[in-house]
């Protein structure tokens, strides 16, 4: 039976993990390769590097991070942030990434999803979506790190990305992100029902039980968290033990 995946995400700027990670023996400013190794040892099913490097010149550094990690960590690696072209995708894949995550760029240029899927295969293309509830009860899609409301209907958008060949959707609820009250169950349910590709829950995990809760209440395939694991409040292993004890298949 397919296991539910637990995915830690590392926010990386100029080759360093941004959030004040303090793993044993690791400096305040985290080394992403060491963090990835630590998550791997905890049983992470995949590792996501999200590049938030602002400058164009700094962009190449994330590729070095991936290259080094791929020599030590033998689980799937995803790179996201700043992927604008098929060449960006190719460079990340060549560096050792297994999947590419596109977000704002896909909204502005949906053809990027199709081009990426045609060339590298659907399994390579994960579409990240930042979304929030609108006053009328629907959800709309935001870009640029949640700063710009595109007034694009979420359900319409997820169906479009599936049609364009995306292999997976990473759904980040801006309503629950940072609140730490659990994943956005109604939103997840609506998206899982609308598409037939795997959906990753993101945004809102604050406690141990939140992960199992998402898997019990929705058919999402995976759950992603960043700060919870960064700050060592929980380990991937604790989350998996909790899921296992509730009858959820995990690796």
């Amino acid at each position: 039976m397919l296991a539910k995946r637990i995915i830690p995400c590392l926010d990386v700027r100029d080759g360093k993990v941004v959030k004040g990670v303090n793993f044993k023996g690791i400096k305040e400013v985290g080394d992403p390769v060491e963090c990835a190794c630590e998550y791997n040892a905890q049983g992470a099913d995949e590792i996501v590097f999200y590049d938030i490097t602002a400058s164009h010149e700094g962009r190449g550094v994330i590729l070095d991070v991936v290259r080094e990690t791929a020599k030590k960590v033998f689980v799937p690696l995803t790179v996201g942030g700043g992927i604008k072209t098929v060449d960006d995708m190719r460079n990340a894949l060549r560096a050792g990434a297994d999947k590419i995550s596109v977000n704002s760029q896909a909204v502005q240029n949906p053809q990027l999803i199709k081009d990426g899927a045609d060339i590298f295969g659907s399994q390579c293309i994960c579409v990240g979506i930042d979304t929030k509830k609108a006053p009328d009860g629907s959800w709309t899609v935001f870009i640029n790190g949640g700063r710009i409301d595109m007034h694009l209907d979420l359900i319409e958008w997820v169906k479009t990305v599936e049609r364009l060949g995306a292999g997976e959707i990473c759904l980040n609820s801006m309503d629950t992100d940072g609140v730490r009250g659990g994943f956005d169950i109604p939103m997840l349910k609506a998206v899982v029902q609308a598409v037939n590709i795997p959906v990753i829950a993101s945004g809102g995990a604050g406690q141990l039980g939140d992960f199992a809760d998402a898997f019990i209440k929705t058919d999402c395939s995976a759950a992603l968290a960043a700060s919870l694991f960064h700050f060592k409040e929980l380990t991937v292993k604790q989350v998996k033990d909790d899921c296992r004890s509730k009858g959820i298949p995990v690796r």
Binding site: M1, L2, A3, R5, D45, S122, Q123, G167, E168, V195, N196, I197, P198, S221, A222, P249, R251
Partner: peptide
């Protein structure tokens, strides 16, 4: 009733 592609860890 399951998504395609089959992505993830299976036993």
């Amino acid at each position: 009733g399951l998504p395609i592609p089959h992505i993830g860890w299976n036993e």
